[in-house]
Design a protein around this nucleic acid. Structure first.
Lengths: 257, 257
DNA sequence: ACTTGAAAGTGACGCAACGTCATTTTGTAT
DNA sequence: ATACAAAATGACGTTGCGTCACTTTCAAGT
């Protein structure tokens, strides 16, 4: 049970803000003195921390209120859309930044004739506007469509998708190396392991998918994350090396794992 | 001399906004009909374009008013300070972005237990503000501090961090299984492989880090993502099983990788 | 018990840049 | 002259508080 000023001191939130949160029902203070002075409990402080955190990642007070009041809130989704929003804002700012640099440089180039530089830039920016189009189609049977849902997605949040993305990222970084190197080979092995875990005996489907992958155009139509031809070729070479090394060790020892 | 609706059509500025600009004196319309309807000239349209452009690079209407009213305005200086402001905004957004990624990845690792992930992150972020750096420096020497930057981060978006997150998430999902099972063991092996790749021969550092990890309190002080004792114990058991199986196969064949 | 000064309370206005009614006038075609 | 579109004006809502202005309550000293 602490007074509002203490809370303000501890949380670095102003008294006005605390009263405002109370007013809009974001943090309804749990008890008051008979005179009406607000008294905050430890619970209230925890909620305040959550509010501060969520505000810090750019959530509006209204959203925070909804989030905290619903115990079954889908955090993952809202955080992702929040991330998308933040990324868009960054893109906007990047655009503004380049406009500004252009303008500043322009003024320098024009030797101080600010008006001229500005006129030029305004002309440029007003002409720049043009549009983009997109479209797609699909071709698969029902069984395969079902299997397709288990294919890792670039937008996935599950550990499996994440690991695929991570492995792919590493492959791309190692593309200048020898596909037979131990680092590359260990990644390929891990990929095959995961493939076995996720798709077990669906070899036919796997092969079909790989064929599609190898055609960038088809991959794009299917909404698969585009992988450069170079990377695909590299992966296939590494894969073949892995297979042949497996075969040679198998013929020598007849082992299995 | 065109009517307000025509102007709105041509400039894509709403009628309301045009009237508002007139009201605040940003664009005082040059002539009106006797009935009071606004009539815009070519001059007015040019000024409108300038206003739109300056608004586009993030200037406030108040600032624009000042800029356009002063024919000797120092554009270069104000644009530079505007650029500084824009860069600061971008930094803010980058900070928010990494917090969001941390939270999203955290939720993925916790396997959907949103509350737990959020609690952990809030704890981290509120503790972070204090003497994190000094604590780090008190524990590690310069070489180790350098190595520390290569430790995967929960907020990372690089493939390495993502794979660690993915592996950790999988471990958590498999915690009810036998630590000797092939799925668990293959993850442990992959973790060790990555450890070798990222830290090569820094065994001492690795051991030090693992000791810290095993102490939740120390981990928290260092800003490491909190992992439950249960999970840590499970990983250690799996790790020991892996080591002993390695030893037994080594003594039989005398191999190395 | 009484006084007093600090702290807490409750409105209410202001900010930026308009959107969105609601109501009244003006312009123009028939 | 009438009707209807378009324009004008006014006022409130939005976000997250800061900043008065004025009143009431708390806790301590006498």
């Amino acid at each position: 049970m602490i007074h509002i000023k203490e809370v303000a001191k501890q949380t670095k939130i102003t008294v006005r803000t605390l009263r405002y949160y109370d007013q809009i029902g974001l943090l309804t203070v749990s008890s008051k003195t008979e005179g009406g002075h607000r008294l905050y409990t430890e619970e209230d402080l925890k909620r305040l921390q959550q509010i501060q955190f969520l505000k810090g990642i750019g959530c509006s007070l209204k959203d925070i209120k909804v989030m905290l009041s619903d115990p079954k809130w889908n955090w993952s989704n809202s955080l992702k859309s929040q991330l998308v929003y933040i990324m868009e804002e960054q893109d906007k700012l990047k655009g503004i930044e380049s406009s500004l640099r252009e303008l500043i440089n322009g003024i320098a180039v024009e030797g101080g004739d600010d008006q001229l530089a500005i006129q030029k830039l305004i002309q440029l920016s007003t002409n720049n506007k043009s549009g983009l189009l997109s479209y797609r189609e699909s071709i698969f049977n029902d069984t395969e469509l079902n299997l397709l849902t288990r294919v890792p997605k670039m937008r996935g949040e599950d550990p499996d998708s994440l690991e695929w993305i991570a492995l792919l990222g590493q492959i791309k970084r190692l593309i200048k190396n020898d596909p037979a190197s131990s680092r590359v080979q260990s990644i390929v092995r891990r990929m095959l392991e995961k493939q076995m875990e996720d798709f077990n005996d669906e070899e036919e489907f796997i092969n079909k998918l790989w064929d599609i992958r190898k055609s960038p155009m088809q991959s794009e139509k299917l909404g698969l994350y585009p992988i450069e031809q170079e990377v695909l070729d590299f992966m296939e070479r590494a894969y073949e090396i892995h297979i042949s090394s497996l075969r040679s060790s198998t013929t020598q020892q007849g082992g299995e794992s």
